[in-house]
């Protein structure tokens, strides 16, 4: 049954448009670098940009770096905020529940679809990046951040592992969005609130005086996915990130469940 939820989401023009925009980002960045002539110097521009001219597959990593602060959380906020509030707004929620589609079951399926969306969205960025990179630049063995070299296959596997980790970084936000989505019948409000929380987290993370709370912020470890491109892989920050996201999921999915299974469905 959750496959039907998945089909519903991906058949929607809005979802396709979101994924289209995400795919466009690495293509635009790679084209810009290619046609402006000069590559970037190390330390200049987004993470991995300096490597792009030597190896096209890095367009995937640049794409992930560039979409992570804004486009990806926005896409997740749209899909998560819509999860329950969108059904309520259309009125379909009352018909799903009287089929009956148990409330817990519906919430779990919506959650599963969100997880799938997070991973699919990041993979779309990675795939679009690799394709654009392969067309515009030479590709070959991947030089890691530690200076060692991986075969193209091993490097590509690392890149998809990075995409998966970025997808995992978004799960906390997705859970928050799902919870907010159970609070209202107005999907746009839920989307805006969810996106607002991602932005707020980023802002707080940038204020040095608040360093005590930084390790608990949703977005704190987001850009650490680059550690996968070290040799050997440096797992510390990635593990912390995934544990933090799991914690957010536990709290907010429980809250969403408590709210959704008891609320009056009036829409």
């Amino acid at each position: 049954m959750w496959r039907a939820e998945l089909a519903l989401l991906f058949r929607r023009t809005r979802t396709q448009a979101l994924l289209g925009v995400l795919a466009l980002v690495p293509i635009v960045v790679a084209s810009a670098v290619r046609f402006s002539g000069g590559g970037a110097q190390p330390g200049e521009g987004p993470q991995f940009l300096d490597q792009l001219t030597h190896n096209g597959v890095f367009a995937a990593l640049v794409g992930l770096t560039v979409t992570l602060p804004f486009f990806l959380p926005l896409a997740v906020a749209v899909v998560a905020g819509d999860a329950i509030a969108g059904e309520a707004n259309l009125g379909t929620l009352r018909y799903l529940l009287t089929r009956p589609y148990g409330r817990t079951r519906l919430l779990l399926h919506k959650g599963a679809v969100l997880v799938a969306f997070c991973v699919i969205a990041t993979c779309v960025v990675a795939i679009a990046g690799i394709i654009a990179g392969a067309i515009l630049f030479p590709i070959g063995p991947v030089t890691t951040l530690s200076g060692t070299t991986l075969s193209l296959t091993a490097g590509t596997i690392r890149i998809f592992a990075a995409a998966a980790v970025v997808g995992g970084s978004l799960l906390g936000l997705a859970a928050i969005g799902l919870f907010i989505s159970t609070l209202t019948d107005a999907p746009v409000g839920a989307m805006a609130a969810t996106a607002g929380i991602a932005v707020l987290s980023g802002v707080l993370d940038a204020i040095p005086q608040l360093h005590a709370i930084h390790p608990w912020l949703l977005t704190h470890y987001w850009l650490t996915f680059g550690d996968l491109l070290r040799s050997p892989v440096r797992w510390t920050a990635i593990t912390k990130n995934l544990l933090l996201q799991a914690g957010y999921m536990l709290v907010f999915i429980t809250a969403a469940w408590a709210r959704f299974t008891t609320k009056d469905v009036l829409a």
Binding site: M1, A4, L8, R11, R12, T13, L90, G91, T92, R94, Y95, L96, T98, R99, P100, Y101, G102
Partner: peptide, 27 residues
């Protein structure tokens, strides 16, 4: 079978697909 306060379906799906989804939502 229920019809509560007017019909409600997904505007971006056809009538047939809407019914298919509703049918699949059953236990």
């Amino acid at each position: 079978g229920t019809l509560v306060e007017g019909p409600a379906f997904y505007p971006w799906l056809s009538g047939r697909r809407n019914l298919t989804r509703i049918d699949a939502a059953g236990p």
